[in-house]
Design a binder for these strands. Structure first.
Lengths: 345, 345
DNA sequence: TTTTAGCACTCAACTACTAAGAGTGCTAAC
DNA sequence: GTTAGCACTCTTAGTAGTTGAGTGCTAAAA
């Protein structure tokens, strides 16, 4: 539907605006060596492109800037994703080489890399899909007569710990017996199942095993409460947004940072859904505070199942080509690392 | 050295400026009902106070604002620390009542309370003084043939965990034996000593106990590396600073937020030193980025020993009275809670 | 039919100037 | 010692005028 020339011009405008953050006039475009038309011709095409909704004008005597639809077209049809250069690849690989990290450290590192390579705010979600997380070990360590730490280790290397209150009438050696019993019964099961078993089977078996099984059950409930699949959010480079000329406004920045602080909000935008890289531009994010931002996400996997999301948040005027390349690469690399560390483990 | 009237005027100016963030003129002061002098008299006194270095003038035809020396005098001599009102006390107490939290959660909560009560940025340092942290339990859980999770629990309820690489040639049941051996030998000792013992005694005993004790030692070193007393920094309300009229500048804000992101920097300013509340105003902080900020800190304790610091960072134009009251209260309350939970434990 | 040169028009951004207002410092009178 | 009065300073807000980038339209050229 767009003519070849229109596409060429749209591409030039988006490119230019992404680089310089300023409206582009017809003369600027006509002067580019890859375009052999006069400013008047460009002007006509620009007028058409605006009518079609791909461009907009801040005011009459200004140049044009891409509209959201313009960015969308650019991302869908014109973009050539940039691959990481040698140095960048090395930089990423070096950070993960030779070392065995816990899941959380990996996400931390990934977020740091992502924001330093892109200069946008990076977000990594450790969405530990409970179906694939199996109990590896459980431990209850008494601290004093009335408090203890419950520790739950999963096959993904995640360690959950919780300080819990010890109900009256459970002596310390009873706890040890309880823990041994649990480890023989529950290790290897998915966490979801573990919680169910405690409610049913374990409950009755416990009755035979221990005197005050009521209290013991209370203890266990405390230990597992709040271990429901909690998604850890890692944010890095939040100050990067302030470098963008379109965010030189304190209130805009405050709104965005406050938005980033409320994890629940972020979840929605970063839920792992489909494969590949997703790009959400402006109001596609359905959130007023970030309607002049774009979000690029990709899902990473373990044993073929989605585990979490990596992504970046930047202005709609984003270097999409480079950003998509980097997010894609990191999601894949993260999958590779997880497979290596935890697959089948 | 300052006359009663000068003190009265200085007090009025600092008070006023803290409230309204605008230079105060002689007429404004003379109109206050507690001051019975004409603007001309005030003017003379203000001129003297400026000469003495307590006030400064943004420009000739503006009013006066307190200088750093002025704030210092105000804090040292004029201030009446505000006590928390009933509602605030209840708010704090309710959050900590009836629940047993792990050390980290407590610091998180404290920071949240601090920033919401003061509307400044709050910082809580979990300075776990190693001398008082004793090993409560150690556990190594194998994840796969070549990776494992090492878990160290201390008497303060802190759980450190680390994913480590398992050297070649250590079968799983050997690890179990190793852990049991360590628990009998090391539990109850201060962490510092634990690390020394592994280097010396344990090393030789291990030699008798296990075949490839070399590898086992490697494993242990991996587990304890990086468990050196690491101070966790909890920050809340970082966006509060943007509400202050003197920080409506994106670059200033970026600098401050970047400063807050580098934990190492913060440590210096929050090292627990003396007792009581400390107030550092402007350049007293010896750090360019925050030379228009003040920091108020107080140290909290366990068994009489300093454990960490709570504090806030705000503009030099800070509500010192209220802020000092709140920081003081929270440091004391935190001490109270820690004693209750972990003392002697 | 497509492209381009030319021209009138628009509008933000910058500059220069003015007026208003808040506040000071000094002097002289109380 | 205190205060009224006044000239002076300096910021802020507002108003014109100017500039320049950019457009839209028309008519001529290709």
């Amino acid at each position: 539907m767009l003519s070849a020339r229109q596409i060429q011009i749209l591409n030039a405008i988006v490119d230019n605006y992404i680089r310089h953050a300023e409206p582009i006039g017809s003369r600027t475009i006509s002067k580019r060596e890859d375009i052999g038309y006069s400013s008047a011709t460009i002007r006509n095409e620009m007028s058409d492109l605006e009518e079609l909704g791909f461009l907009e004008q801040p005011h009459t005597s200004a140049g044009r800037i891409p509209s959201q639809k313009g960015y969308r077209y650019y991302v869908d049809h014109l973009l050539k994703p940039t691959h990481l250069c040698e140095d960048e690849m090395k930089y990423v690989r070096r950070l993960f080489a030779d070392k065995y990290y816990a899941f959380e450290q990996i996400t931390q590192h990934t977020a740091a890399i992502l924001s330093s390579l892109t200069n946008y705010t990076s977000i990594v979600l450790g969405h530990e899909e409970i179906l694939d997380t199996k109990l590896k070990h459980i431990q209850i360590v008494p601290l004093s007569t009335h408090s203890a730490v419950a520790i739950i280790v999963t096959n993904t290397g995640k360690v959950e710990n919780k300080t819990i209150q010890v109900p009256e009438g459970i002596p310390i050696d009873e706890i040890e017996r309880l823990v041994n019993f649990l480890n023989t019964k529950l290790v290897g099961l998915p966490l979801l199942e573990v919680r169910q078993k405690i409610q049913n089977e374990i409950s009755s078996e416990l009755q035979r095993l221990m005197e005050n099984y009521q209290s013991a059950l209370l203890l266990l409930e405390g230990a597992f409460r709040g271990t429901e699949p909690e998604e850890k959010v890692v944010l890095k480079g939040t100050t990067n947004i302030m470098m963008q000329p379109e965010f030189r406004d304190v209130d805009k920045i405050r709104n965005i940072l406050e938005f980033l602080d409320t994890n629940e909000q972020l979840m929605k935008h970063f839920a792992p859904t489909s494969n590949g890289v997703r790009v959400k531009i402006g109001t596609e994010n359905r959130e007023d505070v970030i309607n002049s931002c774009s979000i690029i996400t990709a899902t990473y996997h373990l044993d073929g199942n989605p585990v979490g999301t990596v992504g970046i948040l930047g202005p709609t005027r984003m270097e999409y080509g480079k950003a998509i390349g980097i997010v894609d690469f990191l999601a894949k690399d993260l999958t590779r690392i997880l497979e290596k560390l935890y697959s089948g483990g």
